[in-house]
């Protein structure tokens, strides 16, 4: 028996339920709370006053991003030139014994990946999942870096699809200094400006390598996603 959509019934129940208004109660006061009367929910600009503080200058934000990466165990390398980035990638490839890698056609990323001269799977035109699963590393671009949280914003377009940045065991992100934004609100605003209304089907904030604490609340990296996350910042 095929299930029939109940939207009319559910919407009718919702409207009926909402006929009696709920008291506009403020959060139950904690003793440090100072609940202030307010008209409508606050805008995202207001969040900045309450969330962890982010310094105003680019340098403040770089320092904060680096601090967060360190705490999250994201490897961060800030490089002076594209040549340095290529050398750094080569070093990573040697150290981690990469034999095949995956990447995507990205004007900043692909030239660097190609310099490794390793067998490289490009995801842009589709791929077989087992082939991607066999790759030792994924090298991708991103939409933004977030200072406040040490996050990397990726999307279907900026990071070669959904799986490239999560299936291989080592994810390397190449980003430009100018891609650093102060906080999540700024990153979302940037995504809106770039994509709306034609949003990609996938947008993700990556905050450190994959992790779990499901066994005795002890932190283990590389639960299902990448065990290593490296961010290379180029000028």
């Amino acid at each position: 028996m095929a299930a029939t959509d109940q939207r009319n019934e559910v919407f009718a129940r919702i409207r009926e339920a909402l006929r009696v208004p709920a008291p506009h109660r403020h959060a139950a006061p904690a003793h440090d709370a100072a609940p202030a009367p307010n008209d409508g929910p606050p805008a995202s600009d207001a969040f900045r006053a309450w969330l962890p503080a982010v310094g105003p200058s680019l340098n403040d934000q770089l320092v904060m991003f680096a601090f967060n990466c360190n705490q999250l165990r994201t490897e961060l390398r800030t490089l002076a030139s594209l040549d340095e980035a290529a050398a750094q990638l080569a070093l990573l490839a040697r150290e981690n014994n990469w034999r095949q890698i995956a990447s995507h056609r990205h004007p900043l990323v692909l030239p660097l990946a190609e310099k490794l001269a390793l067998p490289t799977l490009l995801t842009d035109d589709g791929y077989a999942i087992p082939d991607l699963e066999r790759c030792h590393a994924a090298i991708t671009g991103c939409d933004a870096l977030v200072a406040q949280t040490g996050s990397i914003l990726v999307s279907s377009g900026s990071a070669g699809g959904r799986a490239l940045s999560v299936l291989p065991p080592h994810h390397v992100v190449i980003a430009q200094r100018s891609q650093l934004v102060p906080d999540l609100a700024a990153a979302l605003a940037l995504a809106r400006e770039r994509y709306a209304p034609n949003w990609p089907s996938f947008l993700s904030f990556i905050t450190g390598p994959s992790r779990t604490g499901d066994i005795e609340r002890i932190l283990v990296l590389g639960a299902h996603g990448p065990k290593q996350l490296t961010v290379l910042i180029v000028p």
Binding site: T123, T149, R162, S201, F205, G208
Partner: peptide, 24 residues
């Protein structure tokens, strides 16, 4: 919830694979 500044992956899904996307 977890005593973390932000969880590792916070992902937005807005549809199935869209034209021009390589997977999903």
């Amino acid at each position: 919830g977890a005593g973390q500044p932000l969880t590792c992956y916070n992902t937005l899904y807005g549809g199935p694979r869209q034209p021009g996307e390589c997977d999903g």
